[in-house]
Design a protein around this nucleic acid. Structure first.
Lengths: 257, 257
DNA sequence: ATCTATTTGTACGTATGTATT
DNA sequence: AAATACATACGTACAAATAGA
């Protein structure tokens, strides 16, 4: 059941450039024709003819659609532009652009995680295949032993976020899955970039591992309530530790400049 | 505290088109130089010279950045391309593209709303200015009386979603605000497009108004717990009714074709 | 209000690259 | 290996918009 329309609902008041207009027209045409991923758009020459515009303008329009992840273009015979399902990674990347200029804190992200991750965990209980459960177990085996170096600490930190990405990818509610994955992805970027893994924390490692192991058990048993509680504890301890680490790094940063 | 980077973390494996490469280079340049909204990019000629590429290629790159909402371009003297903060509406629109190909149900959206709206309400309690509270009250006055026509029903339905948009815009956690607003916006599109307001529902109208009025009171008093509970009830009843309406419309749709 | 300078926007011709058959 | 059917890239010429004199 697709949403109403893909067409931009932004203020039409602003004058769009011609390429942007063409891109919008193609989008609404795409909706009207109910085109699906893989369907081919008219080729350059046809589009030039239809819109009565130059090659440059049409090409710029295609680049716009491509940037939005809605079409992919291939060269060669049988090539051309094709409708494309916006990829998860592309959608994340576009969304990160929005938050780039905002001042998101670790606490902000954890407020969301605390609300969403337990919900996700509960909804997955009893609904995971053995293969999916095995993937989760394999993932936590990547940090079976406490880290012995900063490099290992970093790797394990990212791996433990990967655990949540896997859970997210299993969600039947695509909106929920998208958001949980987005936050894990963002935290992975942030921790690496801001070296949040640096103030080593044995406690974080031990509790995290405990929680994740307990969670897998609850998920396998189909115990939704338990899964929710476990995830909630996990998020609460992780939040406390991460917020503290953020503050610590903040202090270090201030000192050194 | 900006996130790690704005630069796309998508698989670099895929060969990017030259305009896309240029766009990525400009982005990372933008990050490295720590440029802020309003800052001017080199003009076309300079970019052509710097990258050693043709006008067309550079222009396509700029269209890509423009599509992502990161730059705006103006003609005329003193014109050129300028760094631009990605607008809320643009970010929503780009995200809608992702879900266009997914089968989101009303139930999916409400699962998220049920998790996030109460959290938002609680975090706003006692933190709203009189002006903000007045805006909320003005908004609910738009549906002080039960609707008397389908058209009025539609308008009121959209207005009551507007209520949540206002709350979202007050959030201090930008991530939380963005998501709550996004969902309200999406529901507004969906209800209009799929005529979900049509099976009239006096119950929805009455309870919704009651809840929203009670919520304003709790927010004014700074009673976070009460605000959370009220919003939770609101979401639960709304979900039940909307899901039922979705099913009803589904039945009608199936019948008529 | 008109002109002028600046900068983007559009058009088009040509040549090159690339993948399929 | 060659021919074909596409997109990709480049360069130039001119049009349109806008700010300032």
């Amino acid at each position: 059941m697709p949403p109403a329309t893909i067409r931009s609902t932004e203020k039409h008041s602003v004058r769009l450039s011609r390429p942007a207009q063409v891109a919008e027209e193609i989008k609404s045409w795409l909706v009207a024709e109910n085109m699906a991923p893989g369907d081919r758009l008219p080729n350059e020459q046809e589009l030039i003819a239809r819109f009565g515009m130059s090659k440059g303008t049409i090409r710029e329009a295609m680049r716009i659609l491509e940037a939005q992840g809605l079409v992919k273009t291939r060269t060669g015979p049988g090539g051309g532009s094709f409708v494309h399902e916006v990829s998860l990674e592309r959608a994340w990347a576009l969304l990160v652009n929005y938050f780039y200029f905002k001042d998101l804190t670790i606490a902000d992200i954890y407020q969301l995680r605390l609300a969403l991750e337990p919900e996700l965990a509960a909804s997955l209980a009893g609904n995971l295949s053995n293969k999916q459960l095995a993937t989760l177990e394999e993932n936590i085996s990547a940090y079976a032993e406490p880290p012995t170096s900063a490099e290992e600490e970093r790797a394990q930190h990212v791996a433990s976020l990967q655990f949540h990405q896997i859970l997210a990818s299993c969600a039947s509610n695509e909106l929920l899955g998208f958001l949980v994955g987005f936050m894990a992805n963002m935290l992975a970027d942030l921790t690496v970039y801001r070296r949040l893994y640096e103030p080593r924390n044995y406690e974080l490692w031990r509790k995290g591992r405990e929680h994740q192991a307990a969670l897998i058990t609850a998920l396998r048993r189909g115990d939704a309530a338990r899964a929710r509680e476990t995830m909630q504890s996990h998020m609460q301890t992780a939040r406390a530790l991460m917020v503290e680490q953020e503050a610590e790094m903040e202090r270090r940063f201030l000192k050194t400049r």
